[in-house]
Amino acid sequence: MNSIIIDYTLHLADTTLILAQRNAEWCGHGPVLEQDIAITNISLDLLGQSRNFYQYAAVLIGDNATEDSLAYLRKEREFKNLLLVEQANGDWAQTILRQYLFSQFQYLLFEQLQNCKNDQLAAIAAKSIKETAYHVRWSSEWVIRLGDGTEESHDRITNAVDQLWRYTGEMFEPANYETIVDVTTLKNDWLQKVTTIFNEATLSIPANAFMQTGGKDGKHTEQLGFILTELQYMQRTYPAAEW
């Protein structure tokens, strides 16, 4: 029982950490100052969420595990994050769409999780869902703005849909440790909300898209190894140092 909750908590922690890491790459390089601040803010929120999950996982694991040992000393095949969040930032359209597709899912997930029987996970979800509501609002507004902006922005966000849609199916396919919230029940609601936003953005939902999976079980895209190389560099180079 414990190992199921540990794996599930690590899955939630890894997903939020990796997306935080990706979004933070924009810091100092955003398309306009206000949006540089916004995407960095989202990064910080997600990092905070991941720390809460890692800290809880560390308690469950015991054995001197810490948030840092879990984030910095696990290997590629041990990370359980969604494939979607490790995808490259690409252009602003890809970053925005990745955020929207994920946040819309995360919102529905946290709605359920905040009422689950596990007090810790419920508390983290209840605290985080306010942030997620803002992430959904901000990213969906940008999806609409880019979709219904200029011809170039429409092309770019269409390309982003083409790049990223294949990583959305995984969110609704439960891993064997995903027993607390039945993610299959979130799919219709998610699709309905995404369709509404896409309609307003004059975008279409890809039909019969093939879905890539594996992230939840540690089978990632080639992106993850590079992310971890940077993320974990200091802890790997200076083992056992305190920072």
Binding site: P31, V32, W92, I144, R145, D148, G149, E152, S153, R156
Partner: peptide, 10 residues
């Protein structure tokens, strides 16, 4: 540039 243009056009 294209992002700012899109935001203005929208």
């Amino acid at each position: 540039q294209w992002v700012r243009e899109a935001a203005m056009a929208f």
